[in-house]
Amino acid sequence: MKRHLLCSLLLCGSAQALATSTVDLSVQGLIIPAACLPQLSSGGLIDYGKFAQQDLNLETATRLPVKNLHIGIACNGPVRYALRMADNRDGSAMVNSEIYYGLGFDNSGNRLGVYSMTFDPRQTQASNTAQIYGTESTTGGLAWRTSNLNPIDIGSRSYLGFTDVEGSVSGPTAIGILGGMVTVQTVINARKNLDLSVETPLDGSATLEVVYL
């Protein structure tokens, strides 16, 4: 009897072990009816033209003239969204920060420099509100920075959004049409750090993405 009881207990234990050797997978998401189309003036092209290597600082980085682009985001209805940017020249920025994007490499593989893109809420308008405030999330939209009028550099790992409520921590509000001006600041590496023996093109490229919330 004891042997039968022991065998029954072992079988029960084996059955439980087998029962816990599986796991369920769920695939979820939400398809929304709204869609947004972002656009930049000049086709999103910043062109500094030609300049001589002697125009660059030898020992320190050189700031090129600030450039501005008009930005427009048109949605087919009010929708909550945020913006982020992906560097298509990842690894070429001379500064390791999510708000700086690379300009590619010179002939010897040296990093040419960086650029950043800044949104200014004071120069941003929305179709359904008189004043826009900027807000930012570094947690994928779980928490948001207190909204204000300070300029914000768009990052590759954080969300940038806009709201019509000053001092809010609730994130972006639903916006249909957004328009404004963005500032692009470009910095070239010190001349002593570069191989400029041949023509060297600046090769910055990034993708601005609308993230639906």
Rank of each mutant, 00 (worst) to 15 (best):
G171L: 10
L149N: 13
C75M: 08
Q53K: 15
R84Q: 12
A174I: 06
L37G: 02
L103E: 06
V79D: 04
I99R: 14
I46Q: 12
S170G: 05
P201L: 11
L11W: 04
S92K: 04
L25N: 10
T207M: 13
G161Q: 07
R111N: 04
V198P: 00
V165P: 00
R63F: 08
M94W: 05
C7H: 13
D106A: 12
D106K: 12
L11E: 08
G134H: 05
A206Q: 01
P65Y: 01
I32F: 10
I175Y: 00
D87T: 07
D164E: 11
S21Q: 14
S116K: 13
Q16H: 06
L10N: 02
V95A: 11
R111K: 15
A74R: 11
R3P: 00
A174S: 14
V187A: 02
S170E: 12
A15I: 15
T20G: 06
T118N: 07
N193G: 08
P172H: 11
L64K: 07
D106V: 10
G179V: 03
D55C: 01
G72Q: 09
D195Q: 09
T124G: 05
P151T: 07
L202G: 06
Y81H: 09
E59T: 13
L9I: 15
L112D: 03
V27L: 15
M85G: 04
G77M: 02
I73F: 04
S205L: 13
V198M: 08
G49Q: 01
A93D: 09
K2H: 08
A206D: 05
D153A: 14
K2L: 15
L45C: 10
T173I: 02
K67G: 03
Y81W: 14
V198H: 05
G102V: 10
F162T: 00
Y101G: 06
C75K: 05
T20F: 14
G180E: 01
L142C: 03
A143K: 08
F162R: 07
I132K: 03
T124K: 12
A143Q: 11
L149Q: 15
L40G: 02
Y133D: 09
T20V: 13
F105Y: 13
N76E: 05
A15C: 08
L142V: 03
N107T: 10
Y133T: 03
N88Y: 05
T207S: 15
H4E: 11
A174Q: 06
T135P: 04
G140N: 13
K192V: 15
S8I: 13
L40C: 07
C75D: 01
F105K: 04
G155C: 05
S147G: 10
G141K: 13
S137Q: 03
L37F: 05
I73M: 11
L25P: 01
N96Y: 10
G179S: 14
V23Q: 11
T139M: 04
V184D: 00
L5Q: 09
K50S: 06
I152K: 14
T139E: 10
A143H: 09
T129Q: 06
G104C: 05
I71V: 15
G171N: 09
R157A: 08
P65V: 00
T200I: 14
A174N: 02
Q39V: 08
S168R: 11
R80L: 14
L18V: 03
E136Y: 15
H70K: 11
